[in-house]
Nucleic acid binder design. Sequence first.
DNA 1: ATAAATAGCAGAATTAAATCCGTTTTGGAG
DNA 2: CTCCAAAACGGATTTAATTCTGCTATTTAT
Lengths: 154, 154
Amino acid sequence: MELDRIDRSILRELQKDGRMANVELSRRVGLSATPCLERVKRLEKKGYIKGYTALVAPEKLKAALLVFVEIRLTRTSPDVFEDFKKSVIDLPQVLECHLVSGDFDYLVKARVADMVAYRNLLGETLLTLPGVSGSRTYVVMEEVKESGIIEIPA
Amino acid sequence: MELDRIDRSILRELQKDGRMANVELSRRVGLSATPCLERVKRLEKKGYIKGYTALVAPEKLKAALLVFVEIRLTRTSPDVFEDFKKSVIDLPQVLECHLVSGDFDYLVKARVADMVAYRNLLGETLLTLPGVSGSRTYVVMEEVKESGIIEIPA
DNA sequence: ATAAATAGCAGAATTAAATCCGTTTTGGAG
DNA sequence: CTCCAAAACGGATTTAATTCTGCTATTTAT
């Protein structure tokens, strides 16, 4: 399936404002309401749009501290990676977890209320997960950019 | 300002589905439509909800490769940090950029089409930004978790 | 080159949701 | 206990979403 200029424009607009009314969206992309809605539905159905979400303010919601944690695993068993993945997915403080190439194995992005909460997350939770052999933490001092918006080429 | 149980429930629901109709939202949080909408408006106005966005599929949109790049700056001038920030904000491939404590200075999260595009971003763009003295790249091999949902304590 | 078929588009009508307004209920203070 | 204030409710109105119909453009096969 191939996206045309209008489809890409729809994706750009809905990333900027996911709650935009269909009539407004259609106006912005230069279409009438009906084909515009059809396109949105199709983009959802085909998986180009995976969902919609409200962006909330972490600093007001007991999640002011953003940290990145590099995790190294013992490579003794192939199950270790599976076990770690399953466990980390269930941690609500963990926003992201990626398997990476390089010096360590997983990169975890987490939000917690403060340093106390972070120490608890690391010591009581992350380091007790199966197969974890080491970690390194980077505390975010300033969030320079956090757009989450994926560039859609014109 | 203090959030009650219903406000927090609204924030949870709208993170799960930012396009949910107000009548459906009101049903889920145990309220009628009118006060529910009032609360949503208030949460927006007070900054608890910063906006809404569509979640798009990077792998289908020429942004299949996710990388994290650690950036180190020359600390010769205090302007170096300001200049770097201003420059990196304008790069569309950069989804996030954080000033971190630890061995390096900035952690950049970027999405590009492929390795060729990444080499171009690093060599032609990131490393040419003012004050950059070094970098290290981690290529994401598997995205284990990428929820973006912030835990709202009950 | 032309005709048929497919897909997308616009406008009108219908259905559903959002918004507005008057009333009622609930929670707290005197 | 009663009064006051804030919040929630229900119905009416406005606005938007959805569906239907017919039209137009584009593609494909002859």
